[in-house]
Computed example of a mutant assay.
Amino acid sequence: MSRIIAGAAGGTPLASVPGSLTRPTTDRVKEALFSRLDAFEIIAEARVLDLYAGSGSLGVESASRGAGTVDLVEFDGKASEVCQRNADLVNTVAGHKVVSVHRSKVESFLERAAEGTRWDLVFLDPPYPLDEVGLAAVLAKLLPHLAEGAVVVVERSTRTPEPDWPDGLERFAEKKYGETRLWFAEPGVDEGPEAMLADGE
Results as ranks from 00 to 15, higher is better:
residue 122 V to M: 05
residue 90 V to M: 08
residue 4 I to H: 01
residue 74 E to W: 08
residue 97 K to A: 07
residue 190 D to C: 01
residue 25 T to D: 02
residue 61 E to A: 10
residue 53 A to Q: 08
residue 143 L to Y: 04
residue 121 L to P: 11
residue 49 L to R: 11
residue 31 E to W: 09
residue 47 R to C: 11
residue 81 E to G: 10
residue 162 E to Q: 06
residue 106 V to H: 12
residue 73 V to M: 09
residue 130 L to K: 09
residue 36 R to V: 15
residue 87 A to I: 11
residue 38 D to W: 10
residue 55 S to A: 10
residue 75 F to I: 15
residue 43 I to T: 15
residue 126 P to V: 11
residue 31 E to V: 11
residue 75 F to Y: 06
residue 193 P to G: 06
residue 73 V to L: 14
residue 36 R to G: 08
residue 50 D to E: 04
residue 64 S to G: 04
residue 77 G to A: 07
residue 187 P to D: 01
residue 137 A to P: 11
residue 125 D to W: 02
residue 28 R to Q: 13
residue 118 R to K: 12
residue 179 E to H: 02
residue 195 A to N: 08
residue 141 K to V: 02
residue 75 F to W: 12
residue 177 Y to H: 12
residue 129 P to F: 13
residue 147 A to G: 13
residue 15 A to Q: 09
residue 124 L to A: 04
residue 165 W to Q: 03
residue 37 L to T: 13
residue 80 S to N: 10
residue 3 R to G: 07
residue 14 L to F: 09
residue 169 L to P: 15
residue 64 S to M: 11
residue 176 K to G: 01
residue 72 L to V: 04
residue 169 L to M: 02
residue 17 V to H: 15
residue 144 P to R: 14
residue 64 S to I: 12
residue 120 D to L: 00
residue 10 G to A: 10
residue 110 L to Y: 02
residue 188 G to A: 07
residue 161 P to N: 05
residue 121 L to Q: 07
